[in-house]
Deep mutational scan, measured.
Amino acid sequence: SEHYTFDGEEQAIRFMRDMEAKNLKYELQIHNGKYIIQVD
């Protein structure tokens, strides 16, 4: 699995939509205002 970190919500949402379009599962965590997305 890989981790991707985003500072902004818009970037994170765009990335998650992209993952959904590719049928990839992901998990979102928010730490200290950063959006951390783990992709299986």
Rank of each mutant, 00 (worst) to 15 (best):
S1A: 12
S1R: 13
S1G: 12
S1P: 12
E2D: 11
E2I: 15
E2R: 14
E2C: 08
H3I: 15
H3G: 07
H3A: 12
H3Y: 15
Y4T: 03
Y4H: 08
Y4F: 11
Y4Q: 03
T5M: 11
T5K: 06
T5Q: 09
F6E: 01
F6W: 02
F6C: 08
F6L: 03
D7I: 07
D7E: 11
D7L: 08
D7A: 07
G8H: 15
G8A: 14
G8S: 15
E9A: 10
E9V: 11
E9I: 14
E10S: 06
E10W: 07
E10Y: 06
E10V: 06
E10R: 04
Q11R: 05
Q11G: 08
A12S: 02
A12W: 04
A12R: 01
I13P: 00
R14D: 13
R14L: 12
R14N: 12
R14K: 13
F15V: 04
F15A: 05
F15S: 01
F15L: 03
F15Q: 02
F15R: 00
F15K: 02
M16W: 03
M16C: 09
M16V: 05
M16F: 02
M16S: 02
R17T: 09
R17L: 13
D18C: 12
D18Y: 12
M19T: 04
M19N: 04
E20F: 05
E20H: 05
E20I: 08
A21S: 10
A21G: 08
A21W: 08
A21K: 11
A21M: 11
A21H: 08
A21Y: 09
A21Q: 10
N23D: 07
N23F: 07
N23G: 15
N23R: 06
N23P: 01
L24I: 14
L24D: 01
L24Q: 08
L24Y: 08
K25Y: 09
K25I: 07
Y26R: 00
Y26I: 07
Y26P: 06
Y26M: 06
Y26K: 00
E27G: 06
E27W: 12
E27N: 12
E27Q: 12
E27A: 11
L28P: 00
Q29N: 09
Q29C: 11
Q29Y: 14
Q29G: 05
I30H: 05
H31T: 12
H31A: 11
H31V: 15
H31R: 12
H31Q: 12
N32C: 09
N32R: 05
N32M: 08
N32W: 04
N32V: 03
G33A: 03
G33Y: 03
G33I: 01
G33T: 03
G33L: 02
G33W: 01
G33K: 03
K34P: 00
K34W: 08
K34G: 03
K34A: 05
Y35N: 00
Y35W: 14
Y35C: 02
Y35A: 00
Y35T: 01
Y35K: 00
I36G: 01
I36M: 07
I37L: 06
I37C: 01
I37W: 00
Q38K: 15
Q38G: 05
Q38H: 14
V39H: 03
V39W: 05
V39G: 02
V39P: 03
V39R: 02
V39Q: 03
D40N: 13
D40F: 15
D40P: 12
